[in-house]
Nucleic acid binder design. Structure first.
Length: 439
DNA sequence: TCTGGGGTCCTAGGACCC
DNA sequence: TCTGGGGTCCTAGGACCC
């Protein structure tokens, strides 16, 4: 049986949410702005028609907004999250397998429907609009990537009535001929440029490129895209919610910040917010990353970005411990003289609370061992050239056997290896290299 | 002058292990 | 007595997504 994957996507989602409570804004230009009212992150069709692009800074479109009486909202993520839940719950009642992909999109496995596909999708579309008030578009195809293509057309072309079935290969061919590479799911601006350098500008050209060549020249992700464009499933349906890998809290500041103290305050606030999220999900974290940066539009000399990761001895979820490490991180990377514009923290190495003991033990053991090693490694690499020679220890505990080796490809390898046979030979027998004179 | 926030996955190279 | 090959783990950085 051939597969049919549907992508259900809410139309101009944030705008549709706001319109639910302001029906008079139907058929009027409306936009929703990001935090700090910095950029337009959602536009109604009427606003798009005025030439307001996605993620455009508000100050660049202020004149359009004034001239055409565009209604402007600051974003209200609590509201959007609520309405998203309603849409997803509706879909789960209508289809057996639903993978929630983002706040406004879900993939549905409709493989069992056969020739009723189109009719079912149309009634599904009506249901969602009726029950939630949010208009959606639906694209169907044998793979997720093609379903994205189908959805795009369903949304843009009024003739489709908001639903497009692209399971027929001849239709796929026609659609891909008219699509640019940059409009394919997974191809961003960088890849689009790189592909163009290889003479690939349309989706059909990418589909017909050799997957092996694409993998060599680019990467495995793009190879999957090629396969998916051919109708071969390379991305599976996953209806289990993914386990969380990280928790971020960050903000750009309203004004530039130069002093350490306000940065410390901002980061302290991020830590308590993130720790709340952490506990809410019943997770603990094993490392915390702090980052500071100047505006990405700053001139090269005034540009500064840095981060500091603290690996905790024990995975935790309490604010004070995280705060302590975060503050140390801020101080480590703060540099006087820069005008900071953004800061944030990321909690990594997340584990469920109940796995606490197991995690703690294995991490501790590993860490104690590597701390002893690291000192030696740092010392030697500072003398010999970074990465020239690899050192490790065999065995754990009080009697590690030191061992050296090197990456063969390392350019520094040959010279160092030849110049230092005695050092290496000596380290092998079990005394730490601290005791040696290193040339 | 003013340019979002929160995620994921992959790769490369260093570190570690057998 | 001296030395190596090759796998896996880890992390920073890059690219992408909504």
């Amino acid at each position: 049986m051939s597969r049919s994957i549907a992508l259900v996507d809410c139309n101009n989602f944030y705008v549709s949410c706001e319109r639910l409570f302001a029906p008079h804004l139907e058929r009027r230009p409306v936009i929703v702005l990001s935090n700090n009212d910095g950029c337009a992150v959602a536009r109604s069709n009427e606003a798009k028609a005025l030439g307001i692009g996605m993620a455009v800074p508000f100050h660049e479109i202020r004149h359009l907004v004034q001239r055409h009486g565009v209604t402007v909202f600051s974003s209200n993520y609590a509201l959007y999250g609520d309405l998203s839940d309603r849409v997803m719950n509706t879909l789960e009642q209508l289809a057996p397998r639903v993978e929630i992909y983002s706040i406004d999109e879900a993939f549905l496995d409709l493989s069992m429907l056969g020739d009723q596909l189109d009719g079912v999708c149309r009634s599904m579309r009506r249901c969602v609009t009726q029950w939630t008030g949010i208009p959606v578009s639906i694209g169907v195809a044998p793979t997720k990537t093609l379903a994205k293509v189908a959805n795009r057309i369903a949304k843009k072309s009024p003739r489709t009535g908001g639903v497009l079935d692209l399971t027929d290969p001849a239709l796929q061919e026609r659609a891909l001929r008219r699509l640019e590479t940059g409009d394919i799911w997974g191809v961003g601006s960088r890849l689009k440029r790189k592909l163009a350098q290889c003479g690939i500008t349309s989706a059909i050209q990418l589909r017909d490129a050799s997957p092996q060549w694409i993998r060599r020249r680019f990467n495995i992700v793009l190879e999957r895209t090629v396969l998916e464009l051919r109708g071969i499933q390379a991305m599976s349906m996953d209806d289990a919610p993914p386990t969380r890998r990280s928790i971020t809290t960050s903000r750009t500041f309203g004004q530039k910040v130069t002093d350490l103290e306000p940065l410390r305050e901002a980061v302290a606030h991020f830590v308590s917010r993130a720790a709340e999220k952490l506990r809410h999900h019943r997770l603990i974290t094993g490392s915390i990353l702090v980052f500071l940066s100047t505006s990405r539009f700053a001139k090269p000399g005034a540009l500064y970005r840095n981060s500091h990761t603290a690996t905790l001895l024990e995975a935790v979820s309490d604010t004070p411990t995280l705060l302590e490490h975060a503050m140390r991180g801020v101080e480590a990377i703060y540099q006087k003289g820069y005008r900071f514009n953004k800061a944030g923290i990321i909690l990594l190495d997340l584990h469920p609370e109940e796995n606490y003991q197991a995690t703690l033990f294995s991490d501790l053991e590993k860490r104690q061992r590597s701390e002893r090693l690291m000192k030696t490694v740092d010392l030697l690499n500072s003398r010999l050239g970074r990465g020239a020679i690899r050192f490790g220890a065999e065995g754990i505990g009080d009697n590690p056997v030191w061992k050296t080796s090197a990456r063969r490809k390392s350019p520094a390898y040959t010279t160092c290896w030849k110049e230092l046979p005695r050092v290496i030979a000596h380290d092998r027998v079990g005394r730490t290299p601290y005791e040696r004179d290193i040339p």
